[in-house]
């Protein structure tokens, strides 16, 4: 772990996040793309490798922050994850433990319990690699 480096430039975090996403992609057939991001919208790692995940990271950051604002306003605890169901796919944004980090996944179809479980497991793998501060 490199103290002082932001998470998206820390090789250890980037490597662990990449490995977690690779495992998720292998386990989860309807997964189109996924990004691990900082709470303030920097891409840490993505699958697939082609292209850029920065736009998705920024949008997921904003979505998560808006969800947090609603949860805070309604005083219903803390946000665990949010799902956005569309006519031809779905987006899930899941917090990575209590860290300033999240995982966003884009599915070609609505995710079931298995896919959501895979996502939770991937988030847990990223959380394990996160430095304790």
């Amino acid at each position: 772990m490199n103290a002082g480096l932001p998470p998206h430039r820390d090789p250890a975090i980037v490597s662990a996040a990449g490995a977690a996403l690779a495992g998720l992609a292998a386990a989860c057939r309807p997964l189109r793309a996924a990004v691990v991001l900082t709470d303030d919208g920097f891409e840490i790692a993505r699958v697939p490798q082609a292209g850029s995940g920065q736009r998705l990271a920024s949008m997921a950051s904003a979505l998560q922050a808006l969800a947090d604002a609603v949860v805070r306003e309604l005083r219903i605890g803390t946000t665990d994850h949010l799902q956005l169901l569309a006519s031809e796919g779905a987006v899930v944004v899941r917090r990575v433990g209590a860290h300033p980090c999240a995982l966003v996944a884009v599915f070609d179809e609505r995710p079931g319990a298995d896919e959501l479980g895979d996502l939770e497991a991937a988030a847990a793998r990223v959380a394990l690699a996160w430095p304790d501060v």
Partner: peptide, 12 residues
Amino acid sequence: VVSTEAVNSDRS
């Protein structure tokens, strides 16, 4: 105020 603040991960 409704705020959507996140931890600033790049203090540099």
